[in-house]
């Protein structure tokens, strides 16, 4: 019973790494993918107002959240790693706060961007405040 169990464990560990390598290649969305994904946000999101817009404390909180949740893919300065999108691009910066919040909540699962709906809405708005502070 034990030996087959640990053979299975080794096989699964290999599978994890193999699948991981494949997902690593595909996980990061390219700029075009992000543009298309943001464009899918419903029209009503364009009028959504960020309750934390321009608040220094919220921007600092957003920076902390970015370091905890986003920097591993987008890099510590949000310039992108590999194919992970550079968040300083005008395409991202020109999106409305509402579109960005919608995109954070929904993610782009098929292209590797996770959904951040597990973060409370307030924290997503703080992240948006930080992203908008790049301008």
């Amino acid at each position: 019973m034990i030996r087959p169990s640990f053979a299975a464990l080794l096989l699964l560990a290999l599978a994890f790494v193999t699948v991981g390598s494949a997902s690593e290649r595909e996980r990061e969305t390219d700029d075009r993918g992000v543009l298309l994904a943001i464009a899918r946000a419903p029209l009503k999101t364009r009028s959504w107002h960020n309750p934390y817009a321009g608040q220094p404390d919220a921007i600092l909180a957003g920076k902390k959240l970015f370091a905890q949740h986003c920097a591993e893919c987008h890099g510590p300065h949000a310039r992108g790693i590999g194919r992970a999108v550079n968040l300083h691009l005008s395409a991202v910066q020109n999106a409305t706060p509402g579109e960005l919040e919608w995109f954070l909540r929904n993610g782009n699962l098929w292209r590797g961007m996770p959904s951040w709906s597990g973060l409370p809405e307030q924290r997503r708005w703080q992240l948006v405040a930080y992203l908008k502070s790049f301008r």
């Binding site: 464990l9 994890f16 991981g20 997902s23 595909e26 996980r27 782009n108 590797g112 996770p114």
Partner: peptide, 16 residues
């Protein structure tokens, strides 16, 4: 538990 995010839409997990 070893929990791995294989894709953004797929999580796989192994338990002992």
């Amino acid at each position: 538990e070893f929990e791995y995010g294989a894709k953004a839409w797929w999580t796989t997990e192994f338990y002992l």
